[in-house]
Design a protein around this nucleic acid. Structure first.
Lengths: 359, 359
DNA sequence: CATTTTTGTTGGATCGATTCAAATTATGGT
DNA sequence: ACCATAATTTGAATCGATCCAACAAAAATG
């Protein structure tokens, strides 16, 4: 008898309930998804049967296929998953995304992969209605992969000049100019730049060639902004060392070593991220250099940590939370159009910058 | 003609490709999922057709239904989604979960809901293979809801005495005793406790009645640990004010106000979370009280922020990352058994505790 | 050249639900 | 009792893939 096999772990389906309760599966379905349209008596009977058979409720896997909408947005990066919880910039951004998702009841699916094949697979198989892409390293590959899914997506924090992809970024040139002007007005004349990558997997001093061939236009624009403004102050920008890091501890410290090994060390550092700026402050302090007495430093991003460290970091603040909110909304109420938004930035003067030493 | 309707947004299905390429859907499927078993010539033809028709690749929604496995684990809480990125404890925990997920290539789906109906719906419809539950407020409801899904799940950080649910927690009694002993050995005799909730939505001084009827055994155990140990030092624990907060700014400050409004203010505070301890340090400093000179304070949890603030926080550290890793692995390689693990804790002595003032 | 093996391809069944037009039953009015 | 109308229920079709037993064609073997 079938009952002998009942012990099998086969999960109970809606159809099983329908059969057991003696109704059609259409009605059984209604009991769960639109209970008000089924007669009370029948409804209770079906529910009772379901309860008694240990039915887990309509399986979202089945529902999904029919409904089409997942009601979740995917946030993808090439960094490991922990990036979302460790990195201050990412965290603030996720805060904005969370807000927008909470407001509509949507979920968030975190997608990532260290190695390349897995990334492809994870993007291809993510159950989401759209993607928000954190384009750090390898951003272009991420975009290509995502485009194949033919789902709405927004690229964040970057310059893809590719006008066919939706993106939200900040005015990098303007922000960089703000930073440079601030330092120049303090009388600084000897600069160094802690740069983000111009292309994947690069690190070390950037030559003009590298800058010219920049894959990441965000990096390129920030540098252009720095240089344009400094040039207005009559500074020879060709002499300014630009060190590309991976925006983490090791390569940033290496960059600082290299920069300060030169003769004529800088009195002012332009860092393209708060992360690097914070590491730099730490490194300088450990070296016995005073910030801002000996060296002034301006970050970029405006992460909360910058306000808490000593000295508090002067920086170019992006409206990170707002960017996150907008990105999420772009996906949530996607209308098929490509949107490119550029947000303004703001110079926040705190304690890490001061007048250049006379001499 | 059908071609006139081609403009319609109807997405292309695998079956469409198969038809266009003149192969069966079985073969078309193989081209994407097991390309090695289909003849090169056919494979290329199908791929070309797919490319040309703008096929997005096999839709995971379809695949999912067949495959059964989502390859993602859900992390749920009753807090808003931003909790995962704001709260230090949650962040470290998510770090551990991320590690385990990265290792196996699984994704993370964040599930939450402010209001109750939405929570139910979100839990019911989350596309995941199992859940990790952050049982803060309303933990029991979260557990009940999740149980209905009949998917593997683990409850975190808590005392559910319910032995039928898998859980990972710490030895709250032992940890609390460590904290209490440390302060008692410093000669402190006047204590106050900043407590987590004993039941949902409570705040204010806890009466013995409330403690006895505690819904959250984690809170209860910590208090029991404090009291047991202090009693061994001959301290009358019935006199110790215990203030329940919601583990956030407002109620914690209210608690401190209330505690220090009493005559005989404490010289030592036992906080059941680092979060409260950190707020307390801030509050005490603002009030002109020295920590640990006037008041010593011990936290609980061991979040990274505790090491960075001034004075650095003495605390009972949980192996948070390890708990996260284990929880994730419990779901990832679930074997159908109920597992309950209790992890050890550790007293980390930093600068927020010191000898009691003589007097 | 017949027979066995190997390699590729086919198409029906299945995963677990929802939807909707049509059929059935109930209700109300005369 | 009879018919129009409203309230329920039914069952086939659909969502988009994967799996697999059966079959066909090509290659290897005797």
């Amino acid at each position: 008898m079938a009952s002998l096999l009942e012990g099998q772990a086969r999960p109970i389906r809606l159809a099983d309930i329908a059969k057991a309760a003696g109704v059609s599966h259409g009605t059984a379905s209604n009991v769960f998804s639109r209970p008000e349209i089924v007669r009370a008596e029948v409804r209770e009977r079906v529910k009772a049967v379901a309860e008694q058979m240990g039915y887990a409720g309509p399986d979202p896997k089945g529902r999904l296929l029919r409904a089409g909408k997942v009601n979740a947005i995917g946030v993808a990066t090439t960094e490991p998953l922990s990036y979302f919880f460790d990195d201050p910039f990412a965290r603030v951004m996720m805060g904005g995304i969370s807000e927008a998702c909470d407001a509509t009841g949507a979920g968030i699916a975190l997608v990532s992969a260290a190695n390349q094949e897995k990334l492809a697979w994870n993007i291809q198989s993510a159950l989401v209605d759209g993607f928000i892409l954190f384009c750090i390293e390898g951003g272009s590959r991420l975009v290509d992969l995502t485009r194949e899914r033919r789902l709405p997506f927004v690229a964040l924090e970057l310059g893809f000049q590719d006008e066919t992809v939706s993106a939200i970024g900040v005015d990098n040139v303007a922000g960089a100019r703000l930073a440079a002007r601030h330092l120049a007005e303090f009388g600084h004349r000897r600069f160094a730049v802690l740069s983000l990558a111009f292309a994947d997997n690069r690190t070390g001093f950037a030559t003009p060639d590298i800058v010219r061939g920049a894959l990441y236009t965000g990096t390129r624009d920030r540098l252009a902004g720095y240089f344009e403004e400094l040039a207005r102050f009559g500074i020879d920008t060709t002499k300014i060392p630009v060190y590309e890091t991976e925006n983490e501890e090791k390569s940033t410290r290496a960059g600082l070593e290299a920069i300060f090994a030169k003769d004529e060390p800088p009195t002012a550092i332009l860092a393209m991220s708060d992360r690097m700026a914070l590491i730099a402050i730490d490194w300088l302090k450990a070296r016995g250099l005073d910030v801002p007495g000996d060296v002034s430093i301006v970050g970029f991003d405006g992460v909360p940590d910058g306000a808490l460290c000593t000295p508090a970091l002067t920086t170019i603040a992006q409206p990170i939370t707002e960017i996150g909110r907008r990105a999420a909304r772009m996906i949530l109420d996607h209308d098929g159009t490509v949107r490119r938004e550029t947000m303004g930035v703001e110079l926040i003067v705190r304690a890490s910058t001061g007048p250049a030493r006379i001499g």
